[in-house]
Nucleic acid binder design. Structure first.
Lengths: 339, 339
DNA sequence: ATGAAAGCGCTAACAA
DNA sequence: TTGTTAGCGCTTTCAT
């Protein structure tokens, strides 16, 4: 920067001013400075700027793991939005480990990061307290916390359950099963409630015996299918609360001789990439990941600029993606057991 | 830091010394300082340190896209390795767009990043020149460049082709087909060469008509299958140079009435997550992503510490993952066309 | 073994 | 409109 100043015969402050166009600079000198900048191909050092401005144009993204497509989607879309606003992303996986989580967040804080996008907290209190103290803008994504005063961007989980039930009811299904995510997580209970309520008002039934609690992984889908089949296969439609489990269930159902969607319709949630790479392609609901991330980045950018910490809560709806695993009830040749 | 110094009745330099244990400090004062650090819960500001030290403990990871599992794997494993060494990751997707790529790299440079892990360059010269000038350690991962003087961590691509052929030959297959990645990329030509050479020496044949050039995406697998089938289905085993295409081909083959692996054996490469979520589960080869990333991070950490820029080139072998899509030749009931 | 002071590269009062 | 100067929070010579 000194070089540029010398070359253009001005002071460094003037150079700074033309770079940031913070304060009007005389046209002639501005041109001189700009030429000098070109000549030495000068790029201001962001570290120094950050130190001075207390703002790094860095956003931290903290996810519990980098395995599930859900979280890599977050990263992908957050990166997109951040890049568009001149921010870069520092990412970290906590491996659902509170210690890693804490260490990582602390690192981010020490780096004067501008904000944190936080997905799935393994241990609420510790980390949030950590962040509270520093007043770094944070937005929770995907899984909301009990504390409502923290900005969050979440799926309308009740609505997702309702949407699944609605689609299936419209195909004439009346007897349902559900493979849920871990029920100690509130969003999964909400999803189930939406599913159940809509079935009820739609005249269908969701026997409590036909609710299997999975863990969002492929395997538990298969286990769920086994469980449901073994307690009595008196259902024609099953909704799994994510695609991994839906695919797992579907494969097991097929392996045990059921035709999909002839005998049993099946739906997922997430619209992961592989939901359309399988045969038959999975009917599911897309989570609005792109908007979620955009909103999250927006919230942070705004918060870090204006110091306003409005604890907004943005709820976005899923989008129905009809493919091949759902069909009108009774389309297959299977006889219902227990009827 | 000043607070700590005051509290412990020492100068800031002493505080710095106990933090970094750079120079011996009297036991008593060290204890005093450490207590003071605890008391104010002091964490040194990394920005300031970076400015002074010209080292950020930040590694940039540049990938062409965040869609393919290959690249999210890179991120995942790089994050793992980086975290273990006290580094954080700044990630960016270039969307195969030279401008984005350049802008992002420039950002990294201005952030005094410690090193860059670079995957799949869309436009070689520009960016590499950019990096050359700054002397930031860089390591190419996954796809090597023509310039051999840049450190790289790559798959033994020839070996992968040979491994595929070897496995298939051992099952008695003699007539092969191949769905390749873009052939203007050298690694794909190497893979094909390994495949072809091994088939030749093994007494099999790979008719040139049975080589289809795909683009690594799911769809092109299906197109490849169509192409191969339409030119004459005189083959019993096909290798697709990645799993996406293998799955696409497999689905199309099945849709057109061929039994897998009865009629046709099929293999992929990468061992993506969904290769075992499909039915039948895909036989494939795992790329050693974890080691690749570990090596890459290692190279950067070393380079940034010792200023040694040894242009090492690390080549790692794939690992055969036998699942359900390969079987002995002639296991099915299909009659070979043209025989 | 410790402290004083310079300086990393930038921005922003303040003064001119 | 421009230059001078202080200082962001740290590390590290150079004295002591």
């Amino acid at each position: 920067m000194k070089d540029v100043a010398r070359l253009a015969n001005v002071s460094v402050s003037t150079v700074s001013r033309v770079i940031n166009s913070s304060i009007p600079v005389d046209e002639a000198t501005r041109l001189r400075v700009e030429k000098a900048i070109q000549q030495v191909n000068f790029k201001p050092n962001l570290i120094a700027r950050s130190l001075r401005m207390k703002s790094t144009n860095l956003i931290g993204v903290v996810v519990p793991e980098l395995q599930h497509e859900t979280f890599t989607s977050f990263i992908k879309f957050a990166e997109e939005s951040a890049e568009a606003r001149g921010y870069n992303l520092v990412i970290g996986s906590t491996n659902t480990n509170p210690e890693t989580e804490e260490r990582f967040i602390e690192n981010l804080i020490r780096r004067n990061i501008d904000g944190i996008i936080f997905s799935r907290v393994s241990d609420h209190s510790r980390v949030l307290k950590l962040i509270d103290r520093t007043k770094i803008p944070i937005v929770i994504i995907d899984r909301s916390l009990a504390r409502e005063d923290i900005p969050a961007v979440v799926l309308d989980n009740y609505g997702a359950g309702a949407m699944a039930a609605g689609h299936l009811l419209s195909l004439g299904h009346l007897s349902f099963a559900c493979i849920t995510g871990p029920l100690d997580i509130s969003i999964n209970r909400e999803r189930l409630a939406g599913f159940r309520d809509t079935i009820m008002t739609g005249g269908g039934r969701l026997d409590e015996r036909y609710i299997f609690e999975g863990n969002f992984k492929y395997d538990s889908g298969g286990r769920g299918a086994d469980f449901l089949l073994d307690t009595g296969a008196d259902f024609t439609a099953v909704w799994a609360q994510n695609d991994y489990m839906a695919i797992g269930a579907m494969n097991r159902l097929a392996a045990r001789g059921f035709s999909i969607p002839g005998d049993i319709s099946i739906m997922g949630l997430d619209n992961i990439e592989h939901s359309w790479m399988i045969m038959p392609a999975l009917t599911t609901m897309a989570q609005p990941f792109r908007q979620m991330c955009e909103s999250a980045v927006d919230l942070i950018v705004k918060a870090s600029r204006k110091e306003t910490t409005d604890a907004s809560r943005i709820v976005l709806g899923p989008e129905l993606v009809i493919r091949e695993t759902t069909a009108p009830a009774g389309a297959g040749s299977r006889k219902l057991v227990g009827h």
